[in-house]
Design a protein around this nucleic acid. Structure first.
Lengths: 230, 230
DNA sequence: ACAAAAGTGTTGGATGTACACCCATGA
DNA sequence: TCATGGGTGTACATCCAACACTTTTGT
């Protein structure tokens, strides 16, 4: 790469790969961690298999912008928490061409989809019950689950899986599902209230026949104090 | 992307980017966290500036293989701990072409270089004293430092910055440098020995005029138990 | 009055922190 | 014998885990 000519001459050879992004978008459904899938077109080599939402990165967008765009255009999801997960560059991961994919993890709360904007068929499946997905997408989901499980322990990331206002029982259920064990209600409440990241909204929610629960929200003004639940 | 023709016709347009990798290789020098830099060629647009070690990803290699290759070919470094850091895809990060870089963090112990294999001029600089680097490499280094600082708290990653055998004082110094505060010697030793990841090699190291220190090594057989130093 | 989830305190054990002196060695 | 880093124990405070019953509501 010493002269400009050399660069230009070889440029076509160096541009051998297509860039893509895949988004592992999680959401809690009936206390199960669920992932957003989209149906591949019936003419693709994975004809009819389910895949993550994603697609090509365009020349004038960053990987993150591309992930946002695909989430919105394909699934009608906008404005959710998102973080870069890992870049998958195995040579044969797409049998047709070399495709390098920058994967993202996204976390949504209830009912995040505006289906009028969704261009492809999507569905949510519990992560414990996934079929064989297209490409290496099972592997990508696994990496995302590991990341989410580990971050729940030392960050307040759980908030992105909940609506704006939620009960302490809702929050506890998210923790319990993600770490896979039950927690003591009294200890959980004391700890989560002690670290001072929740605000009592003074609202309550009645459901059915039980005593109404008070609703809390996360105080995003405070510095991200760690929560050491178990 | 419905027909094969459409794919082939547009493929050249979709291959707009060059893929590269950049490696943030850390090492402790005189109790300072230091990073490996390489000199850019004097004909590059960053003529003479220092940059991370890295380069293009080739058609037949993964990002990780490419990072390994560049570390070896350019800096003569082989067989070090390595983990994927982040993928940088900002549109203007290389002023000449669109270059998407998959960055890695590498951790080396003392004197990891075989300089007979190093093809370019390199040096190690303390991270607290870096000049303006080429491209967005200052930003990449910052991400790597943040990652390392945070992982030191809940993993045993410190081991990769030390030689095979080391004293407890060596290990404590790595922790102290990375977290930026001093630790109590007795508490540090008790905790690190309690978690049962170190093996007493029965060797000792004398240096200068002091009492010899016993050398330990990490027991990689054990499951990666966490160390909660501070 | 009952069903169902909300909400609430205490105690014993474990863990973490603060702290200062003697030891082994080579010069 | 001195200078240097190596190595050791205890007491107090704090944090964490285990544990069960009362409250509020709608039917």
């Amino acid at each position: 790469m010493d002269s400009k000519n050399k660069i230009n001459n070889s440029l076509e050879n160096l541009r051998f790969a297509v860039l893509a992004t895949d988004v592992v978008c999680f959401r809690m459904i009936n206390n199960q961690l669920s992932v957003l899938l989209s149906k591949t077109s019936s003419t693709s080599i994975f004809s009819g298999k389910w895949a993550l939402v994603g697609g090509l990165i365009l020349e004038k967008e960053t990987a993150e912008q591309s992930a946002e765009r695909h989430l919105l255009e394909k699934a009608g999801i906008n404005n959710v928490y998102k973080e870069q997960l890992y870049t998958f560059s195995d040579i044969g991961r797409d049998p047709r061409n070399r495709v390098v994919s920058v994967a993202y993890m996204a976390l949504a709360s209830n009912d995040p989809q505006d289906l009028t904007k969704a261009k492809v068929e999507t569905k949510w499946l519990p992560v414990n019950d996934l079929p064989v997905l297209a490409y290496d997408h099972n592997q990508i989901v696994k990496v995302a689950i590991d990341r989410l499980r580990s971050k729940i322990g030392y960050t307040n990331i759980a908030q992105y899986l909940l609506p704006e206002e939620f009960t302490l029982s809702d929050l506890q259920a998210v923790y319990e599902t993600l770490i896979g064990e039950t927690l003591d209600k009294r200890n959980f409440r004391r700890k989560i209230l002690d670290v001072d990241i929740l605000i009592d909204t003074k609202h309550t929610r009645k459901q059915g026949v039980m005593r109404p629960a008070t609703l809390y929200k996360f105080s995003n003004s405070k510095k991200p104090k760690l929560v050491n639940i178990l």
